[in-house]
């Protein structure tokens, strides 16, 4: 099956639940556009809302994730958006890790887009975000790795990222988290699982970003 057929089939699954979308193509990029009419529940609060969105699916999908814009003019520029107008749904590496569990359009829409839009609707209603937000830029990326590895020390994060970006796992080495344990007896499982995702290039990218911000700061 070529990628267009994959996208078409995933689109068919999507419109069973969200019927007001259209799929078309701009060169090789699949465009899914229309009204996302959702109802979502978090911590006992149900929100139903409608947004007009445009999802762009690259020809390298599902290795590369779709990008989404809100085109109904509801979300202001100062909310989480990239310069080119795409919604910042999550830290890219985190998104990728989650997405690979279930790489379908329906999952993408419900896991990332609905969650993001629920957050925005919630903020409109109650004046604050329901589940916090990552800081913009590098701090957000560091934030994510702090959560992922359960550490607070930035040097630990850098060491983990070096292992991941070089696919250089040594179980008998000391774990970078300062636990004094061997890696295999500490964060070994997490690291091995992340290595299996085959996204060393993303870890390397994040490592570079963090290193660059460090040198800038000092």
């Amino acid at each position: 099956m070529n990628i267009k057929e994959v996208i078409e089939n995933q689109f068919k699954e999507l419109i069973k639940k969200y019927p007001s979308f259209i799929l078309y193509w701009e060169d090789d990029i699949g465009i899914v556009k229309g009204e996302l009419n959702f109802k979502a529940l978090y911590n006992g609060v149900v929100i139903a809302d409608t947004y007009t969105i445009k999802i762009e699916i690259p020809s390298t999908y599902p290795s590369n994730l779709p990008m989404t814009k809100e085109i109904g003019g509801r979300i202001p520029l100062n909310f989480h958006r990239l310069a080119n107008d795409y919604l910042c749904l999550e830290v890219p590496t985190k998104m990728k890790i989650i997405f690979m569990q279930n790489p379908t359009l329906l999952f993408y829409v419900e896991k990332f887009v609905v969650e993001y839009l629920y957050g925005f609707s919630y903020k409109e209603k109650f004046g604050r975000l329901p589940y916090g937000e990552h800081p913009h830029g590098n701090a957000g990326i560091i934030d994510f790795y702090k959560e992922l590895f359960g550490v607070t020390d930035i040097n630990s994060i850098l060491k983990f990222l070096k292992i991941l970006s070089n696919s250089n796992y040594r179980g008998h080495h000391l774990c970078p988290c300062n636990s004094e344990k061997k890696l295999r007896n500490c964060h070994g499982k997490t690291i091995r699982e992340l290595m299996q995702l085959d996204i060393a290039y993303m870890f390397r990218f994040d490592l570079d970003v963090i290193l660059r911000s460090k040198t800038n700061r000092f």
Binding site: Y42, H80, L89, E90, E115, P130, Y131, G140
Partner: peptide, 9 residues
Amino acid sequence: ITSPGKPWG
């Protein structure tokens, strides 16, 4: 929505 993500960027 369980274990929600956080918007970033």
